[in-house]
Amino acid sequence: MLKINNLKAGIAGKEILKGLNLEVNAGEVHAIMGPNGTGKSTLGNVLSGKDGYDVSEGSALLEGVELLELSPEERAQLGLFLAFQYPVEIPGVSNANFLKASINEIRKSKGQNPISAPEFLKLLREKMELVEMQKDFISRSVNVGFSGGEKKRNEILQMAMLNPKLAILDETDSGLDIDALRIVANGVNKLRTNDNAFIIITHYQRLLDYIVPDFVHVMYDGRIVKSGDKSLALELEEKGYDWIKEEVEAL
């Protein structure tokens, strides 16, 4: 589904991703772990097309389509979703209107008609249950006055509504209490199918207790330096990242 080949990218002349390779197939959940400042969030941002990053080399294909040449909305319309670490507040625009705009733009890109109001509401109610959102959520402004946990749940709700092929969760677990974490993880697990895939960027192993990954990668200095199965995450939790650094620097 996603094929990243020798991706090099940076910001303001400073290279952050230094030749990253990753392949994700449909039905898989990949976890990317690593110490702070190794480029994890940059990967999510570069894949979804945030301004300000310069890609100097490499490619990232989503189902054979080069992502790096597309605008952020075109990538989203292709089925790429990024759950933000710090979601943006949009006063005056209700969650319902925002999601409807989003769904309709994606449908438009595929030549489909806009979603009907009843159909949309039915879908929204169904997905709201999934992340245990209060009813008044529909009319509240996007992320305005939301607690940290509510913002993250809203990200998962948006993901559920847009039904992406590939979702990248950027430190969705940071700042969540255990209940919110459970709700978020539960949402992801219910959305897992054989046709979609997830990349979960996280600092801690904690989230992976709830969302069991098929693969765990360790990022260090702009590259994936070690890959394994879920046991690797446990090992990292126990031993920290220093031994990885040593291993890499020894090379």
Binding site: A76, L82, F84, P87, I90, E105, L162
Partner: peptide
Amino acid sequence: YESFYLRSRGIGKELSKAL
């Protein structure tokens, strides 16, 4: 960064700006 959030949800540049 605000505009990016909307565009990452598939909303086009012009509409993102308008919103």
